[in-house]
Amino acid sequence: MRLAAFAVAVTYALAGPAAAWQSEDERIFGPEDAPQIQVLSVTDLAAFAPVLQDYVTRNPGRGIRYVQASSTEIYAAIHDEDARFDLVISSAMDLQMKLANDGLAASVAPDARGLPDWARWRDQLWGIALEPVVTLASRQALGDLPVPRTRRDLIALLRENPERFQDRVAAYDPQVSGVGYFLIAQDDQVSDGFWRLAEVMGRLNARLFCCSGQMITELREGRIAIAYNVVASYAARFRPDDPDLVQLAFEDYTFAIVRSALVPVNAPDPQGAQDLLSYLLSDPAQRLIADSAGVALIAGTGKPPVPQLRPIRLDAGLLVYDDRLRRAGLLSEWRAALIQP
């Protein structure tokens, strides 16, 4: 078909024969025989377990079946494969937004006192956590070099010390990772300097990863020196007991993703989902969540955001990131910058 040629050839993460979606982990909270709220979530089970445990402790008659999957798997499961879940939690804001926009999210009325307007969309998409996106560096690898405070500093640092950072810079692979693509799109929108950074990273033959976890592992094992755009909550699990990890919240801007929850229209137990959502937005749950994310979504439940923190709003603008042409254009630019002959 000739027309297919209009769209730039795309290696689309979601394209290809749709295999059934895959989960990464699964656990049941509460009594085995209690009615279970089905939760599909991107959040690391280990990080979220205390919150869920607290809920089932407070509600003895309730159980939770928690299924962890990647954000693209979650999107595929809900959008294309009609998977039945009561509550869907994801950090991929654009995909969550698209689910809601396409009419797959039900209207619910949880108790959401204090939730800022930009952290919700209608009565369908509810922000439950703020996740700063930071850059991690290994103290050892930096050596006597100054700790960069802005992206401009980082570019200069990388440029001036190519031998030290060659093959040792890590970033998300936007062609594989939904969050990675989303963050690059944000960077592209906010700053012109980002593409210079991308080019510098390309020249240093940066390594691309599917997920934050892998980047952190590589960093801790000393194989890389700097990991750009890492979701802070992952880092938070290692940082306290690894003095080598430096967390950089750049002063020009630091994004914060809103991790959001929605109740699918075909949820078997929407009331249970709404209850759980109310709990997730309540003070005790928000304290637990803010503790692991490092910043409070609802004022007064944890550390206030640093001034340069730029939360990404939950609004219809997010829909543009999912556009096929836009995506193709951005990815081709990314490839042009990163993959250099």
Partner: peptide, 27 residues
Amino acid sequence: EGLELDLPYATFSMLGAMGDERIFYLL
């Protein structure tokens, strides 16, 4: 290679502003 479209974020954001509207488009 064909055509290029850069969907403007601000435009979508503005369209949805009045009461969180759902937005659909087609090229």
